[in-house]
Design a protein around this nucleic acid. Structure first.
Lengths: 340, 340
DNA sequence: AAATAAATCTAAACTTGTTTAGAAATCGTT
DNA sequence: AACGATTTCTAAACAAGTTTAGATTTATTT
């Protein structure tokens, strides 16, 4: 038997005023609607006394605004995403918005279902998303066309959109450049396939362009593609095979943190000592524990906090400015952590 | 200019029936209300054709149910919590519920504010929470008394509640037991203070009881308390100091993953080689990258998936059974990962 | 003091569904 | 054909706010 909640009407009755007035005052529009200061105070104090809190559903139903922003990520257990989530949440909280985080489990269907529920239903006022979708088709739907959406981490090249991403090309280029400077000529890159994801294609491009700069020919043998659904097994298989082939590699470059972790597992399993073999190990995406893992990890660190903050503010901006001017594309610099 | 959404009424008009009927059919209550099969089919096909999706706010306003469950954690960027979140989400998705994850940033006020918003407002149907609160007072409020709440990771000893936690006592006891079996007699434990958090007090208890079992007297010098707000700095300071004192320690036991990471940073900074020093390193909470970090980490792994699944199901159970029978307390076994 | 203007407040409509109470149509029975 | 019983459907109330249009009350002007 739940306690009856205090309603606007209850306060109104207590004070012998209309609930209209109470609503206006509670929403801080007392002055705008010319409610006397004295009355405003009465209402506010009574509301406090009666522990009034508005019913979010009634409010959202009428106003079409929920003051809720959705964050959809592929996998909330990935520290890259959970760190972004933390910063988005902080930034939004400061602005009076709440964040609803959902993990799609790398499942496109689930992602689309959640977007339908949240965005089309206007359950949320805006959406921040690291999409797992391969094309922009879904987002081009009439109903979503005018919904405030901010892509993070990845964007879809076939549609115009607002996004906040790290400069994947530049980061990968610099990392490769560093490896080359450290004397590497046979850098084995491990990527995810199918790599329709913008961040990954750009990392590959940066890698290749850096090679080109130093006249190092790119060899197909030095780019292993591992299946997205089976990273661990694939990395194991292909890496083991490649390690036996010549020309011998002098660096291993994992294109994201999942692959990096998978490589570490393989090293561990076969007792591979990269240092002894004279092989450098690098990873795009930094994990703070990399500071302590055995093969030294040279990594590209993404500005996680900045991504979160910028994405939050961009989302809020889009919500405020209904007339969708131009699309905002924010590209943030990465930094190399070399851990000599 | 947002496209006009399809409403129940629109479908009703198209078919020349009442919106009541449409609502009944859409909610699968057609048979219960005796709507003819033929009409039901008409409605369903028209609804599909017009891409109808109900307004969640209107529905929630009327029914008082949102089919949304809240998950409040102190810090979503902590892999322990983000992993639980992932499993809770999976489990709930399978049951037709959505999860709303919020991170309170270890801020009690923010936690209470979010609970007020979500729970008291019935924005969510149930709450799963790793509370940062120190007492059960807030949760004893009339308004929350009958709200379905499942505590995870930590519970509040001063109130009766439903909870799903790991067996912190047993895990810590076994870990200490293992260290002793490996020859350790001076096990330095690092804990967070003030340690009102149930999980931590139980870990301490397990540690002490294991010592007692082997007639090893507990020494105050072997329990360092680091401030919650300043883990890194405190660990550094106190650990460095203790390392210089005698009797020399032969094991370092971090009572959670934050402390473990902080210890690793200190080791790194001062070039402390635990192995060479003959000191074992242990941690409550496992992180998968521990597999690769330099001082071997002996850890207690919590059944993250199980915690998530059990918490989700317990929450759903509480939502269904309004009459709050007895409180369910689920305590799950941990496992030791010794990484010799 | 009447007329006009300004300040303060309110009744009713509105948001979009769900549910209740009851109407209309169909059927079966004598 | 009349009656009640079923079957099928609907109008209106309801959830709890916000907003609009307009009503009162008070103040100002002549």
């Amino acid at each position: 038997m739940a306690i009856k909640k205090t309603l606007l009407e209850d306060i109104a009755k207590e004070l012998n005023v209309s609930k209209t007035l109470v609503s206006m005052v509670i929403n801080g529009k007392g002055d705008a609607y010319g409610i006397s200061k004295k009355t405003q105070e009465k209402v506010l104090s009574k509301a406090g006394e009666m522990e009034y809190t508005p019913n979010v559903f009634a409010r959202a139903l009428r106003t079409g605004k929920s003051h809720l922003i959705g964050l959809l990520v592929a996998d909330i257990s990935n520290p890259f995403y959970s760190n972004i989530a933390k910063h988005v949440e902080r930034e939004l909280a400061a602005k009076g918005y709440n964040l609803m985080i959902c993990s799609t489990d790398e499942n496109v269907e689930r992602e689309e279902k959640l977007i339908s529920l949240f965005a089309e239903q206007h359950m949320i006022d805006g959406l921040i998303i690291a999409t797992t979708n391969t094309s922009g088709e879904f987002f081009s739907k009439e109903r979503l066309r005018n919904f405030p959406i901010v892509f993070i981490d990845r964007y879809l090249p076939d549609i115009e959109s607002n996004y906040v991403v790290a400069n994947n090309y530049q980061g990968s280029y610099e990392l490769t450049d560093l490896l080359i400077h450290k004397g590497c000529k046979n850098i084995l890159a491990l990527n995810i396939t199918p790599s329709h994801i913008s961040s990954l294609t750009e990392r590959i491009k940066g890698y290749k362009d850096a090679l080109t700069k130093y006249d190092i020919p790119f060899k197909d043998d030095n780019l292993l593609e591992v299946s997205f659904n089976n990273i661990q097994k694939d990395v194991r298989e292909k890496l083991l095979k490649r390690l036996k082939q010549s020309p011998k590699i002098d660096a291993i470059y994992a294109l994201n943190n999942h692959i990096a972790t998978a490589c570490l597992h393989v090293f561990n399993e076969i007792g591979y000592d990269a240092k002894k073999e004279g092989v450098l190990f690098a990873s795009f995406d930094d994990i703070n524990l990399f500071d302590f893992v055995k093969p030294n990890v040279i990594s590209v660190s993404q500005p996680v906090e900045q991504i979160g903050v910028e994405a939050a503010n961009l989302a809020l901006h889009l919500i405020d400015s209904k007339n969708s001017e131009s699309f905002k594309k924010i590209v943030l610099a990465t930094s190399i952590i070399s851990r000599n």
